[in-house]
Amino acid sequence: MQTAAAPRWRQPSILPGFGLALGVTLTALSLVVLIPLAGLVLKAASIGPAEFLAIARAERTVAALRLSFGASFLAALVNAGFGMLIAWVLVRYRFPGRRMVDAAVDLPFAMPTAVAGIALAAIYAPNGWIGAPLDTLGLKVAYTPLGVVVALVFIGLPFVVRTVQPVLEEIEPEVEEAAALLGADRRRTIFTVILPSVFPALATGFVMAFARAVGEYGSVIFIAGNVPMVSEIAPLLIVIRLEQFDYAGAAVVGVLMLAASFVMILLLNLLHGGLRRRLGHV
C-alpha cells in the first residue's frame, strides 16, 4: 500500500525498506563517527582561542606538523613517480609474474601498520639489509626524518598505482595511433597525449597518498626515532599528550589534523569533479 505521499526530499519508489535502511545507517554513523568527532571539535572549542593558539603555535606542535606534512609531501612525490611507472609497466607490458606483481601492489593495504613499522625499522637500522650499505655511505635512514619518508612511501604506494591503472587501461589505442599518424614520435605521444590524460588521476592518487600519510602512525613510529622537534610526527604528539593526560593539547593537534582531512576531502572532490568534466565519466 502506498497511498501516503512520500516526503518531498525523496523520490517515491516501490522498493521497501528505505526508512529502516537509512535509520540504521544514520544511527550507526552518528553514534560511531559523527558524535565522537563533534566531541573533539567541542573539546577544542572549549579551550578558548588564546590557549588554542598558544598550543597550536608551540614550537613542538609546529615542528611535528611540519614533519608530518613535509615528509608526507615528499613521500607522495616519490609515490607519484614510481606509482606511475609501476602502473605503466603493469598495464602496457607483459612479463612473467605480472599478475602476481599486480596483486602484490596491495600489500600495504593488507599489512597491519605495526608489522610494516617494525619490519622497516629492522631493514633500515644501521645493521639492517638496506641500512648497513647505506650506513657505509654515511646515510642514516632509521631514527631520522628520512625514515619517516621511507615508511610513508610504503603505505602510500598503492593509492597512486590503483588510481592511475584503470585510466591507463582505458586510453584507446586509436588515440596513440592517431598521434603517430599525425607525425608525433613516441616521446611526443607520451608527453602530449598519454600523460595529460592520466594527469587528473595521478593528481588524485598523489592527494590520496598524501592524505593517508599525514595521519599515518603505526608504520612510522618504529622507524622514526621519535626525537621531539626532529623526528616526532603529529599523530605521535597526540598520543604523548594523551599519555600525559593533557587532553587540551591532544585535542588541539587532533582538530588541526581533522581540519587537514576535510581540506583533503574537498580537494579530492574537486579533482574528481574536474576528472568527470574532462573525461565525461569516472
Binding site: A211, V214, L258
Partner: peptide, 10 residues
C-alpha cells in the same frame, strides 16, 4: 580520511 590516532582520540 581521519588519522587512526584521531579516531582513538575522539
Amino acid at each position: 580520511s581521519v588519522s587512526p590516532v584521531v579516531s582513538g582520540l575522539v
